[in-house]
Design a protein around this nucleic acid. Structure first.
Length: 470
RNA sequence: GUCCCCUUCGUCUAGAGGCCUAGGACACAUCCCUUUCACGGAUGCGACACGGGUUCGAAUCCCGUAGGGGACGCCA
């Protein structure tokens, strides 16, 4: 058995789309599962729309997702002479021919077919004409001869879609080489996949019908046909094709919102692929379990709530050190300046409590922002509303109480405040909430006792004083 | 217009003729835990697109219908 080789082949006309990310993931997982190779090919033959920035963005996105490719990326534009060579070889063998029809002529032909309700196909008008009839002033294209047996059908065994049959009558003599001698996409893909030794083509199912056209080229060249797996596309929450109005489409958007690559991998894997009831699947596990046959055949919709849930899982799963490093940029962004060392140390100390109340790194940064914010802390609306006269009194009282706590630890602080509440006949909430407001500026946070411990006596008392004065 | 693909809870899915009064997860609701918010635990809500067959028996097989998606370029 030969080694499995897969490829991801984006055209660099923009950022990496989330659907593309999943296609890349499936290619990567399958190659890793089979102990094979996963290659990257940049399909930049459209010189008008391809940009250097897009190439950069796609590569950076793939790296962020941890989908590193084997070897050097192949740039399709650099293989053009090889593609042309194949086309000329086919002409020589009589399997392709020159067509002198003008674009205007073809437009007219299609219009006519449309009007008559016929399939829109090139009618082969130059297929059997003698070259001597060729007009001198037209640069011809090269067309491949589709099967002339119009009765039969072509069958493709797709690992995801199963057996797909298409009547030969649906195929026409497609263009291999343009008038200017450059290869078309259909030709380039087939030649590159062959030359790169691709054994399994895993791509979006918008290419399913292209497969039949590409088969004609494989057959003409006598090349071995690779295995195909056409994976359904990802749709937006409303079931229509995913677009900008659905929110995040680019892989970078997810990075910037604070999603973890491992969470993206898990979520994207489960979107359209299942393994029993298992939901949380680590990348190592996924490599062991992944099969192309288990990819679903129906398109899936993005579910941001589930992504958030999966992300929350992986955040809790991360070590505090890793998480701190990942969260730092989000803290800086939320704070709008660099936090000081003390604040950062406090944030780090509070991370264990913080991390199970955030679903993204951005939320995590916000949840712990009170650790790094300089005094005096602004109160949010709910916290301000809570600061009524009795609460103000509690603040003044507990300033005194906490001042006398010798070892400023969670347990001692808790005991002191519980004693105070009991003495005053107050429910603990009546004491803890004002304290929380003073220390965090909000009405929700991890244990206030622990927050106080992390802030330390001096900072805790200072924040209480800030409130008492206002 | 022609051809191809798809259709199980709101969403992602399990399900390969009897294990299905259809399972899990997210979301939602209620309760428990609790100093708040979360986390965690428990319970609930909720689907085989529709219509015909085949069969003792169908979510699973067959045929239609409807709806959705895709392809039909000298774009990729």
């Amino acid at each position: 058995m030969t080694e499995v080789v897969t490829r991801f082949a984006p055209s660099p006309t923009g950022y990496l789309h989330i659907g593309g990310a999943r296609t890349a993931l499936f290619n990567w997982l399958f190659a890793r599962h089979m102990g094979g190779k996963y290659l990257l090919r940049i399909e930049d033959t459209d010189r008008e729309r391809s940009t250097e920035e897009a190439v950069e963005a796609i590569m950076k996105s793939l790296k962020w997702l941890g989908l590193n490719w084997d070897g050097e990326p192949v740039f399709q534009s650099q293989q053009q002479s090889r593609h042309a060579e194949v086309a000329h070889e086919l002409v020589k063998q009589g399997k392709a021919y020159y067509c002198y029809a003008t674009p205007e002529e073809l437009d007219a032909m299609r219009e006519e077919q449309h009007a008559q309700g016929l399939p829109i196909r090139y009618d082969g008008r130059w297929r059997d004409r003698d070259p001597s009839e060729a007009p001198k002033d037209i640069a011809p294209v090269v067309r491949i001869k589709a099967p002339s047996d119009t009765e039969g059908e072509m069958v493709v065994h797709d690992l995801v879609q199963g057996e797909v049959h298409v009547p030969y009558s649906q195929l026409d003599d497609m263009v291999l080489l343009r008038g200017d001698g450059t290869p078309t996409y259909m030709l380039s893909v087939v030649v590159d996949d062959h030359d790169m030794g691709i054994t399994h083509i895993v791509r979006g199912d918008d290419h399913l019908t292209n497969t039949f056209r590409q088969r004609v080229i494989y057959d003409a060249m006598g090349w071995k046909i690779p295995q195909f797996a056409h994976v359904p596309m990802i749709h937006g929450t409303d079931g229509s094709k995913l677009s900008k109005r659905h929110g995040a489409v680019s892989a970078f958007a997810y990075r910037d919102m604070g999603y973890l690559p491992e969470a993206m991998r898990n979520y994207l894997l489960r979107l359209g692929w299942g393994h029993g009831d298992t939901e949380i699947i680590s990348t190592e596990e996924a490599i062991k379990l992944f099969t192309l046959e288990d990819i679903g055949r129906s398109p899936s919709r993005m579910d941001f709530a589930k992504l958030a849930y999966v992300n929350a899982h992986y955040m809790r799963d991360s070590s505090d050190d890793t998480l701190m490093e990942l969260t730092l940029p989000f803290i800086e962004e939320a704070l709008e300046h660099k936090p000081d060392e003390t604040g950062l140390a406090r944030f780090r100390a509070g991370l264990t409590d913080l991390k199970d109340r955030a679903e993204t790194l951005a939320e995590l940064a916000h949840a712990g922002l009170f650790y790094v914010r300089p005094r005096p802390l602004p109160l949010d609306a709910a916290a301000a509303a809570l600061m009524d006269a009795p609460a103000q009194g509690v603040i003044r009282d507990i300033h005194g109480v906490l001042d006398t706590v010798k070892d400023f630890s969670n347990d001692n602080i808790e005991k002191a405040l519980k004693d105070y509440a009991k003495k005053k006949g107050l429910k603990l909430g009546k004491v803890a909430m004002p304290l929380r407001a003073a220390l965090t500026g909000t009405t929700s946070s991890p244990s206030v006792f622990h927050v106080a411990e992390i802030l330390g006596r001096e900072e805790t008392l200072a924040r209480l004083s800030d409130i008492a004065r206002s």
